[in-house]
Design a protein around this nucleic acid. Structure first.
Lengths: 218, 218
DNA sequence: GCGGGCCCTATACCTTGGTATATCAGGCCA
DNA sequence: TGGCCTGATATACCAAGGTATAGGGCCCGC
């Protein structure tokens, strides 16, 4: 059995959400931090994107509050950079000197919210909660997927092939012909696939296969 | 056979996209219309939301160019209204007096683009093309789904039950027990389901069932 | 009342799927 | 080198799925 990852991960019940704040103005970091702490959230202040990247983030649902104007690059660029680096923390933008094209770009890139100063405290809090909820969902889905992928990795190449063809709706006989095997051998592989993937039925396996994106229809 | 809808619909090859324009200023309608026509698009000008709603739209991929400020209600309200009425035409906003919260609201509600005047012609054209492409995809997916739903409607209640349980991974024997039937009866229903749903294999049926949202796992 | 659709059932037969047991080749390690 | 694990294979047997044919009960609309 090699399926400990998910159990362990989701067993860590106390997943207290966090909010990372990137703003070069210390007083803003301070006031945003205390605002968020006042509603029970963990605030992590950073003075720059670089500082943020050097920090190891908690393994919990979170959200990023990002000033559009940053020391080095712009917040929008940093948002793209994060996405490119496969870091999908939801982003809430705040800005003192924003314009419409900026906000549209940010929203198109998936930002949760784009707040122009001055904004109401409650608006920021709402946005942050939305972001955290979105991250929680994303993490849950990712966890499940990682678990499946791990099981899939435990398959031998032959088993993977067989799984692909089974999920595509081929009969054992057809699979045997395609892979130049005897039908019996296919059955053995098939049984191994069912066991290793923890599929309780063929429909179950089909759904799993589709999630791991093996399919191809037929 | 009752599966004519999709064949007919997708057989209408010449699906020339259209762009509806809602703006109370006639000269703007005119200039936007000629701009879009200049790139080969069909422009449909309207002076108000009401006028737009009274018109029957072409059965083709399209896009809506909407002024934020309209005679009666605001363009944002109208966008919500359309979504509520299950009209999912992609929306490109244009405005002379917009602000950030407005653009953010529009984008959150799924707008394709939010352009503040003055904007470059090419930006509008690009946005409209994006919208049309999005609509094309949506229509394609909807077509396929409608087709499946139509087939599903042709099932008798019993057949639907059996389909649900088959897709949930139950054995014929278990299904028979659950529905108080003999196993042979289940087989008959099952065969009917496969034929009526045009499923070529069990995995095929499972995927169809999931799309029609029958499942429930197991 | 009579045809037709739907639902249920049965017999018979064949195909396909699933499992147990056993064998063999190759890689790994004490 | 011998023991051991794993992947691939095979034989044999049993369970489940699929199809054809046939028949009975029920309800609805013509």
């Amino acid at each position: 059995m090699t399926d400990r990852s998910m159990s362990e991960r989701s067993a860590m019940a106390a997943e207290t959400p966090f909010v990372a704040i990137i703003d070069d103005d210390p007083s803003i970091r301070e006031s945003l931090g205390s605002l968020l702490r006042s509603v029970g959230l963990t605030a992590l202040p950073f003075a720059s994107a670089q500082e943020f990247l050097q920090q190891r983030l908690p393994d919990a649902p979170g959200c990023l509050v990002l000033d559009v104007r940053l020391p080095g690059q712009s917040g929008l660029e940093f948002q793209r950079e994060l996405t490119g680096a496969d870091i999908h923390l939801p982003v809430v933008f705040i800005t003192g000197h924003g314009d419409i094209p900026m906000s549209v770009t940010a929203m198109k890139a998936g930002a949760v919210e784009f707040l122009a100063k001055p904004f109401r405290d409650q608006d920021l809090i709402d946005a942050v909660h939305t972001g955290i909820e979105r991250d929680r969902d994303r993490r849950r889905a990712l966890d499940a997927l990682c678990d499946l992928r791990e099981r899939f990795r435990s398959l031998t190449p032959r088993e993977r092939e067989v799984m692909r063809l089974v999920a595509a709706g081929q009969l054992n006989k057809q699979i045997a012909a395609e892979l130049q095997l005897s039908e019996i051998t296919v059955k053995v592989h098939r049984a191994n696939v069912m066991r290793k993937m923890q599929a309780r039925s063929l429909p179950d396996l089909v759904r799993i296969a589709d999630k791991v994106t093996l399919a191809g229809d037929a």
